[in-house]
């Protein structure tokens, strides 16, 4: 049954991809198609990265209503980015190749995420406390990011403003090549780890009993999550609740937490929502720039429902 549903999801994503590429096509067709193909690559990458990183993150934390961005990882990425500019700005850092800078930022995020999250995971915090701390970490790093931005350039109003919501219309295509390599590598690792993830979801005691070296595995998975978060944040900016929405939907659709099924299902759902939604907004509703806000809105409502209903059980 799960296979059928994945097939349906796959068909839906193909449909949205085709619709994205072909609807309203006119003028210089080859040129427009190429433009759209690049954007499609970026969007589907973002959708897949967020979905997969959320699934893995939820498994590692043993908590179904957290996502990397709720725990402040995307804010952490933006902060790391700004901290690099701040620390190395004088050394001609800004003039470096963007791909190289991106690589540096990914490494910084990996280090920061492990430094912050590993102690938190080790201390086995109460779910609510962990979430609350994560959200506050997010606010703190967003504030630090805009503080640094203003320290570097006191008139940097635009930077702060741009960092607060994802914009699926202004994709950083210059990073696409490197990001694609990173995404594909991460996806391969995630897919190969699907059975390990099933064991990890049983919790540290059981997993250790089943022969998993807990701290090493979790560190590895966090590094994986960090690289995927870096990809999506670098390409479009932070998204708070998108991952939650996607994974909650995917889990409802395939009705299993087995990663061999859930990982592809979530990735496909991510593509359907993002590519399909963008198509809809571009051609149906005429304002493509607000998809990010709308997703936040519904994702947030989904989160509230999960919180209130989940706590009733």
């Amino acid at each position: 049954m799960a296979k059928n549903r994945i097939a349906i999801l796959a068909a839906l994503s193909v449909l949205s991809v085709v619709a994205f590429l072909t609807i309203g096509l006119r003028g210089n067709i080859a040129f427009v198609l190429e433009l759209r193909a690049i954007k499609l690559l970026a969007l589907s990458q973002v959708g897949v990265s967020i979905a997969v990183s959320t699934v893995i993150f939820q498994t590692v934390t043993g908590n179904r209503i957290v996502t990397p961005s709720i725990m402040g990882l995307d804010a952490l990425y933006l902060f790391g980015q700004m901290a690099l500019v701040f620390a190395l700005g004088g050394l001609g850092y800004a003039a470096l190749n963007p791909q190289l800078k991106f690589a540096g930022e990914v490494l910084v995020l990996m280090a920061l995420a492990c430094a912050l999250l590993l102690p938190m995971l080790r201390s086995r915090l109460d779910m609510g406390l962990m979430l609350l701390a994560g959200v506050v970490f997010g606010v703190l790093f967003r504030s630090l990011h805009s503080l640094l931005a203003r320290l570097i350039d006191p008139n940097a109003f635009a930077v702060v403003q741009g960092a607060s919501f994802a914009n699926f219309n202004a994709v950083r295509t210059d990073l696409l090549a490197f990001a694609s390599v990173l995404t594909i590598a991460a996806l391969i690792v995630a897919w190969r780890a699907r059975h390990v993830l099933d064991v990890v979801s049983l919790g540290s005691d059981t997993a250790t009993g089943l022969g998993i070296t807990w701290s090493r595995t979790v560190t590895g998975l966090l590094v994986l999550v960090s690289s995927l978060v870096a990809v999506s944040t670098a390409l479009v900016g932070p998204v708070a609740f998108f991952g939650l929405l996607v994974v909650a939907l995917a889990e409802r659709i395939v009705n299993t937490r087995r990663h061999a099924v859930l990982l592809p299902a979530a990735a496909l759902t991510g593509i359907v929502i993002l590519v399909g939604g963008q198509t809809l907004f571009q051609h149906g509703l005429g304002s493509s720039s607000t998809l990010g806000v709308v997703i936040e809105f519904f994702g947030g409502i989904a989160f509230l429902l999960l919180l209130v209903l989940g706590s009733r059980k």
């Binding site: 109460d126 609510g128 609350l132 959200v135 708070a240 609740f241 936040e296 947030g300 409502i301 989160f303």
Partner: peptide, 15 residues
């Protein structure tokens, strides 16, 4: 679960 209330508030405000 005392931490649910502020969490709910944060997301409610976010929405």
């Amino acid at each position: 679960q005392p931490f649910l209330v502020p969490l709910f508030g944060l997301v409610y405000g976010g929405v």
